[in-house]
Amino acid sequence: MPPMQWDPSPEPQDTLGQRLDSAARHLLPSFIAVLAIIVLSAPLGLPGAAELLPPIMIGSVFFWSLWRPSGMPALNVFILGIFMDLIGFTPLGVSAFILLLVHGLASYTRFGLMRLNFLLVWGVFG
Rank of each mutant, 00 (worst) to 15 (best):
L105I: 07
G45I: 04
A106N: 09
F31I: 13
L35S: 07
P12F: 06
W122M: 00
A74D: 10
M72Y: 03
G104Y: 08
P54C: 12
G48Y: 08
L116E: 13
T90H: 05
F89N: 09
G59P: 03
L119A: 05
D85W: 09
A74Q: 13
H103V: 04
F78Q: 09
D21V: 04
G104W: 05
I58C: 06
F111P: 00
S30H: 10
L101Y: 05
V124L: 08
L120S: 12
R19M: 14
Q13T: 09
M84S: 14
S65W: 00
S41L: 02
L80D: 00
W122R: 02
F31K: 07
P91R: 12
L86V: 11
L44W: 15
D14W: 10
H103M: 08
L27D: 01
A50L: 10
A23N: 05
V77E: 11
L75R: 12
F125L: 13
L52N: 07
A96T: 07
A49K: 10
M114I: 14
L35N: 15
I56C: 12
L52T: 07
Q5R: 14
L99R: 05
A23T: 02
Q13F: 00
L44I: 12
L27V: 11
R25M: 01
S95N: 13
L101K: 12
P47W: 09
A74F: 08
R25L: 10
G59T: 05
F118S: 00
S30Y: 08
W64T: 12
G93D: 07
F31E: 08
S107W: 02
W6E: 14
I32V: 15
V77T: 15
Q18G: 05
I56P: 00
N76D: 12
W67D: 12
V94K: 05
P54V: 10
L80F: 06
I56F: 13
M4V: 04
Q5H: 03
A33F: 07
S95Y: 03
M1A: 13
M1R: 09
L101Q: 15
P3M: 11
D7G: 01
G71L: 10
G48A: 11
R25E: 04
I98Y: 01
L75Y: 13
L101P: 07
D7I: 03
V102C: 05
L75I: 10
L105G: 09
D21E: 13
L86A: 01
G126S: 14
L16H: 03
L92S: 02
W67P: 00
P73K: 00
G104D: 09
T15D: 13
L27P: 00
G59S: 03
A42N: 02
V94M: 09
R19T: 04
L86D: 00
F89Q: 15
S65E: 05
L92Y: 10
A36R: 06
L44S: 11
S70M: 06
A42L: 06
V61Q: 06
L52V: 07
